[in-house]
């Protein structure tokens, strides 16, 4: 199949590359924009490792084709700390809410959306919201702790 020139806005920068229509957004971000913080874990939309933000909402990077995303604003983990997420990143470190770190970018982006949608979640609400993001290492508790901690700190501000 002919390659097409695809130009995406990723973290506010335009990235152009000639790619086949079949290239997923996740692969474009990794191999064309060379932003490797977005991880590929299952390529069928289950694990959540490739979660990015598309036009302000989270989406699976493996379930979108790059060519679909022309005209959309893509945000990845590399852009995360510049927004409101730095406190989440710090809380993940403090609570050791990551071990291998492979799920972490997707987990952070999901957690960030959770706190935008629901600034005062219960622990169970956090668990349910994040239940589309697989983590084999932590057992999830420290992740929940970190998110709850950030919610609490933001409320106190």
């Amino acid at each position: 199949m002919m390659k097409r020139l695809v130009t995406l806005s990723i973290n506010g920068e335009e990235v152009s590359a000639a790619v086949e229509p079949r290239m997923t957004l996740a692969d474009f971000i990794r191999s064309e924009a060379r932003l490797t913080g977005t991880h590929v874990g299952c390529e069928h939309g289950v694990c959540g490792a490739c979660t990015v933000r598309v036009d302000g909402r989270t989406a699976r990077g493996c379930l979108l084709f790059a060519i679909q995303c022309e005209g959309s604003e893509i945000e990845t983990i590399e852009n995360f700390g510049d927004g409101k997420g730095a406190d989440l990143q710090q809380a993940f470190v403090e609570h050791n809410a990551l071990q291998c770190g492979f799920c972490t970018p997707g987990m952070l982006i999901a957690a960030d959306e959770l706190l935008r949608d629901d600034p005062s979640p219960t622990r169970q609400a956090v668990r349910e919201y994040l239940s589309g993001n697989y983590c084999r290492c932590t057992g999830y508790q420290a992740i929940v702790d970190a998110v709850m901690d950030v919610a609490e700190r933001r409320r106190r501000k």
């Binding site: 995360f80 700390g81 492979f102």
Partner: peptide, 21 residues
């Protein structure tokens, strides 16, 4: 103590094999 390598992983600065080209 906190893990010195954790901050890197929260910022998308891990270096996994598939990240190498």
């Amino acid at each position: 103590v906190e893990r010195p390598n954790a901050a890197r992983l929260t910022r998308g600065r891990g270096r996994f094999v598939d990240d190498i080209d």
